[in-house]
Design a protein around this nucleic acid. Sequence first.
DNA 1: CCGAGTTTTCAGATATTTCTGAAAATACGG
DNA 2: CCGTATTTTCAGAAATATCTGAAAACTCGG
Lengths: 193, 193
Amino acid sequence: MSVPPLCEAFVLHFGEMGSRWGINRTVGQIYAVLFIAERPLCADDIVDRLGISRSNVSMGLKELQSWNLLRQRSIPGDRREFFHTPDDIYAIVRTLVDERKKREIDPTLSVLRELLMRSPESESERHAQERMREMHDLIELLTSWYADVHKLETERLIQLLSLGSRIVKVLDMKDRLFALPGGKRSANPETGN
Amino acid sequence: MSVPPLCEAFVLHFGEMGSRWGINRTVGQIYAVLFIAERPLCADDIVDRLGISRSNVSMGLKELQSWNLLRQRSIPGDRREFFHTPDDIYAIVRTLVDERKKREIDPTLSVLRELLMRSPESESERHAQERMREMHDLIELLTSWYADVHKLETERLIQLLSLGSRIVKVLDMKDRLFALPGGKRSANPETGN
DNA sequence: CCGAGTTTTCAGATATTTCTGAAAATACGG
DNA sequence: CCGTATTTTCAGAAATATCTGAAAACTCGG
């Protein structure tokens, strides 16, 4: 691998992480190299830096593109394609989460929905469905939260994340403000509850 | 595989998902079988249901235990060990996230910190460090948010999740309430900002 | 439409992971 | 301790995944 030592450590670590993620080591390394590169790289730049075959790079880039993780740029007068990662790291994370959701969560939800439609033929099936229902409902809660938060601009998102669980205090405050004199919670049009 | 059709579909799907997750197909299937089982199962129950070797089950259970995903129960007068998953699915998800964090995020953060300490020896190292810094800061923001939210009881968590991005309206409301007459934001002791 | 530069494909080689059966280790009642 | 029930380990077999070089397929200026 012909990259400076600092970069090498980063690239190697990403390779390892990649393999825990269902993308393979090489793909992880290719991504890492692109992520820290000062300029867009062509396939042969990656061959040089990682010391792997041209065809392997080609397949790796395909894989990363299928994850929507790369941008492409062509330089006038140069036939080669140059690749780079988006500058905005928040955008990168959004893409990652979106893609994983698309590949893992959505198919799971649809399997669960299908299975929950069937009529159980035995007590064990009935119980299994009960468990599937719990899983389904939780996944649905999480994804609808995500869909919702996904819409926020980065600015807002950071604000929200920085707040952490202190948000609960804000909620409490809201509840106190809207509490009816009798102590019962108000129906609050803003939260839909 | 000798489980009712409904269960089989669930187990097979989980096997597939498992392989996208860095745990292998069999381990995913073992977990699925335990998750929907009506009662704790012993290793041989799993052998019967999945039609895989006893030793494979043993290794799979070890793997799941290393993820903290199983509970064990022994029946008096029976030497066998019985396994089951926690009832509370929220607790399961917390465990999953915790473990993934421990295995993926924490090591990444520590590599990043180490690399950020070094002095760059070239312009390309300097630029690489800048990117690593961005990644580091984002991961840190996300994990500290998670650490924070993690403390909430399930009840509160659900409340928060159900609110989704409507939380932003609550925030706006809070900001308006605390706004100083001049229109500048107040220093708000409740949020620490 | 030619041909040089470039990318993609893919069959087979290589490497890695997963799975098994047999043997070893462990647990425990008597 | 012994013997039986059970679990774990592990070397090698089987299955998968990854990687490569060579060939095919593009692409585009001329």
